[in-house]
Computed example of a mutant assay.
Amino acid sequence: MTMQSILTEQEIVTDLLTSEKHHTSTINTFITESTCSNLRQNLKDILNEEHSIHENIYNLMNQKGWYPTSDAQAQDVQKVKDKFNSLQV
C-alpha cells in the first residue's frame, strides 16, 4: 500500500514561485555569459516574460495572505538608495 501525499494550493503556488526565482536567476546568468547578441536578446525577452509570471504568482500569494509584505518606510528606502548610489562608479 502506498501513501499519497496531497499538496495544498499554497504549497503548489509556493513551489511555483520558488521555481520562477530559480528560472530568472538562471536566465540572467545565461544573458550575461552569452556572446551572441541574438541569443542574448531572446533570453532578455524570455526573462521579461518570467518576471511577469513571477509577479502574477506573487500577487496571488499576497492576496491570499501567503506572502504578506509591508511598505518600507521612506527613510529606509532612502538609505538603500544612498547605499546603492555610493556603490556606483
Rank of each mutant, 00 (worst) to 15 (best):
K81I: 15
E55Y: 10
D82P: 00
Q75W: 13
S52H: 08
N38P: 01
S25Y: 07
I27W: 03
H22P: 00
C36T: 08
N38Q: 09
N28Q: 12
N38Y: 08
R40Q: 10
M61E: 09
H22K: 15
L60G: 04
I46D: 05
L60Y: 15
M61H: 04
K83E: 03
M3H: 11
S52P: 00
H22N: 13
S70Q: 15
Q10C: 07
I46H: 02
T35D: 13
Q4G: 05
Q78S: 11
H54E: 12
E33D: 06
Q10V: 04
L87K: 14
H51C: 06
M1G: 15
L39S: 00
I27L: 15
S34L: 01
F84K: 09
I53Y: 03
T8C: 09
V13F: 05
Y58E: 13
K44G: 03
W66R: 04
A72E: 02
D71I: 07
T8Y: 05
A74N: 06
E55R: 06
Q10Y: 00
T29I: 06
T2N: 09
H23L: 10
A74I: 11
E20N: 04
A72L: 13
V80P: 02
T26V: 13
K83R: 02
E20K: 15
L16N: 07
D45S: 11
Q63K: 08
D82T: 11
S37G: 01
H23N: 07
E11M: 00
L17C: 00
G65D: 00
T18P: 00
T14I: 11
E55Q: 15
F84W: 13
T35S: 11
K44E: 15
G65L: 02
K83D: 07
I6A: 04
N38D: 14
I12W: 03
S19N: 12
T2A: 09
L16V: 14
K44T: 08
T26G: 03
S5C: 05
W66M: 06
I6L: 05
T18E: 13
E20L: 15
S25D: 15
K21P: 00
